[in-house]
Design a protein around this nucleic acid. Structure first.
Lengths: 172, 172
DNA sequence: CTGAATCATTTTAGGCTTAAAACAGTTGGC
DNA sequence: GCCAACTGTTTTAAGCCTAAAATGATTCAG
């Protein structure tokens, strides 16, 4: 590519001459977003059509499934990366649906514990199995090594992004 | 783990004995989601804090920027992959902010055309430049070949997912 | 033992999103 | 010309999401 450059221009100069062409990164970001949206929207739609459940509710049930002894609302909001106030209504609807149960903690009257009911647990097991198969279906065109490479590259991206975020705005 | 399997079971049989271990795909999907959410939330937050604009409004302005002659609401909803009813309020707020302008089409009294105002156009140019730099910053930890590989692998994933979606539910 | 700080949750106000119904304007077959 | 089908937009009802304020419970320093 740079073979025919005049000899007086060294590599550093060439770089500094195009300081701001970030189109490749921008295109990559758009593609990343497209892929995620594609999968996510389809998952939402299948959960809704086949199990009459929304993705946030599924997520909440997944968290409770991983914690059979239940979780407080704060623990839930932390794990779901969702604001605290959000959970109040979400929990209320899952209670109405009979999937989960509120339990007040004996020792601290501020905290609300939430647990899957037996019915909710069974419903979640059914949904989670299907969900896993759906995801496998979406990734079917990728080989095992594709999956490994993608996993590694996304790991790198995750680290890079976190670094960029925490560099600019870590609480002083 | 399976080292002590009876000798009569060959590799193929072993594979068929675990027909449904899709954990690698599931983990990859979670990581993909994490990366996208990480970038998206940070972009939202910066747009909000530095330009007092939401991501949907930025997206809408980006579409209008690419179409200097303006777009109808239906064209906009198609390009933004968003429902039609969604746009009514979104457009209304951008009109209030002075970023865009409604123009009724001369020939068809049903359609509403929308165009960036000069102020909106200038505001968008400023935001888009910053936005590109932010994305470049998030991807800084990736080499040029990382970016190429990621682009290719995500292209494969996009194709695979589309195939899986259209296989199960294309309109008959 | 008491008041300030802290903590868990809920409420509030505002925005985004969808699907489906309602409205309004246009078009084509008769 | 007229009406039925179609099209573009808006409205409605319901859900998800956040930040910030409010409420209620706990803890701890003095």
């Amino acid at each position: 590519m740079d073979e025919a450059l005049p000899q007086v221009i060294d590599a550093e100069t060439v770089v500094s001459e195009r300081p701001r062409d970030h189109k490749a990164e921008l295109r990559l970001w758009l593609r990343l977003l497209t892929c995620t949206t594609l999968v996510e929207d389809e998952v939402r739609s299948r959960l809704r059509n086949r199990f009459d459940v929304t993705l946030p509710r599924f997520d909440l049930m997944a968290q409770l499934h991983k914690a059979p002894d239940g979780l407080t609302l704060s623990q839930l909001s932390g794990r779901m990366m969702v604001s605290n106030g959000n959970l109040t209504a979400l929990v209320e609807r899952l209670v109405e649906a009979g999937h989960i149960e509120r339990r007040s903690s004996g020792s601290d009257r501020r905290v609300v514990n939430v647990v899957l009911t037996p019915a909710g647990s069974a419903a979640f097991a059914r949904m989670a199995g299907q969900h896993e198969d759906w995801i496998a279906g979406f990734f079917e065109g990728l080989s095992e090594t594709d999956i490994e490479h993608l996993m590694a590259l996304l790991g790198k991206l995750k680290a890079s992004t976190r670094a960029a975020i925490h560099q600019k705005g870590p609480k002083p």
